[in-house]
Design a protein around this nucleic acid. Structure first.
Lengths: 225, 225
DNA sequence: CGGGTACTTGACAATGGTCAAGTGTGGTGG
DNA sequence: CCACCACACTTGACCATTGTCAAGTACCCG
């Protein structure tokens, strides 16, 4: 089992390139937990005891307003970590996390990780890379929310959807359209209408959660908007 | 001069707590540059050679859309750094930077910093803290843009404006109202109207760039929106 | 087959952006 | 010292995008 754990961890970008000894230490402090669909993992403002590494499943990170409106910040999948921010500053979770499916993960206590960081510059560099990647992604989210209107956001999403979702100019959504709407900062209704319009103009073709991209140049054009 | 440089650097959160020797090294690789109001420091997408430390002045970090609409991500002041992200991942600037005033700063070349990081866990921890602070701030920006409407954003800004701006329930803006509008994801027109409305309802009192907060509970109420 | 959830569609209202035309106001040069 | 210019800001009228409410349809799972 620990051997297994090491293998899983070393696969991930955050832990790759680390010496065997560090991986062993990580595996020792990793605390396995499983969540079920709909489970709330933590809420914004709670004291953060550490961060999570997703082995399998899917997690939604989001903000929720006073009136109940929700904005998804990102979805987390296998090999990725989340809730790293409070490890380094603050100490409280900046958002909510909810399991969308049966999700196995490892929990890493804050203090243990900080000790490891102090002793291994490689891990620190990996963490810096991880945080800055997330920063880029959030920056793009801000850009989309503020500078683009709904159709442009959708076009941008379809074109730059994470590589795993795209095959042969065809996007296979890994979340419901309702969830996607919340990530795009809009509502299911508006998303539905936008998809319809883009279908009518022949830019895409929708079939359930599968979306064929028929006119990439046209979509690029929209996404710029 | 180098003694001076060391003093300036050690004041800043990012470099505080570092051993004398590291500070000396930093001071040695620091390349002083001065920008004038309106100067473009770099544009989104450009290759990034390093990051900047602001000694004095003020810098605007923003995204600009195809049509020319602008969204300010944040303003950078003395003691703060910017453009750290490309040091750790990517290698291109994720946004634009423009000097709003006469600004003196130090430029730190990417490679030199990475070497330093590998040798000093303290610096790495400071950088991690810096990035995670920025992540929190961006998360809040997303929340404001997506979950709140214009008046709520303004109220939230007034209440949580950085400490230096507030004195005796009175906010002294350090940017023009036009710039503030762009930070709040709106237009000067809308901001002007919102300020007027809040004045009429007796929640604030505006006089040039000075805004008195007359009804904090009321503002808290709005900001929750 | 039944029930819940996801999704679609329609009608309506409203927030806020745009365009256009003012009204300051501070700084510069005559 | 005053006139003037540029720029920040204000105000008004209009309109587009999009959120909301409501109702209906499709689809999946037991």
């Amino acid at each position: 089992m620990p051997e297994d754990t090491i293998a899983v961890l070393s696969q991930s970008p955050v832990f790759q390139g680390l010496p065997e000894s560090q991986l062993r230490t990580l595996a020792r402090i990793a605390d396995p937990i499983t969540y079920h669909p709909g489970d709330l993992i933590f809420s914004e403002g709670e004291d953060a005891a550490g961060f999570f590494f997703v082995v399998s499943g899917q997690v939604k990170i989001s903000k929720i307003s006073f009136e109940g409106k929700e904005q998804v910040l990102h979805f987390v999948g296998p090999g990725e970590i989340f809730a790293e921010v409070p490890v380094y500053s603050g100490g409280t979770y900046p958002a909510n996390a909810e399991a969308l499916r049966e999700s196995r993960m490892f929990f890493f206590p804050r203090q243990a990780i900080r000790r490891l960081l102090a002793s291994d510059p490689n891990l620190a560099m990996n963490m810096l890379a991880d945080l800055s990647r997330r920063l880029r992604q959030l920056t793009r989210l801000v850009e989309n929310l503020s500078l683009k209107e709904s159709p442009a956001r959708l076009a941008a999403y379809l074109l730059h959807a994470s590589e795993e979702l795209i095959r042969d100019d065809q996007v296979e959504l890994d979340v419901t359209k309702g969830q996607l709407a919340t990530l795009l900062g809009t509502t299911p209704e508006t998303l539905s209408r936008t998809l319809k319009k883009m279908s009518e103009t022949g830019q895409i073709q929708v079939q359930g959660r599968t979306i064929k991209l028929l006119d990439k140049p046209g979509l690029e054009q929209m996404a710029a908007g």
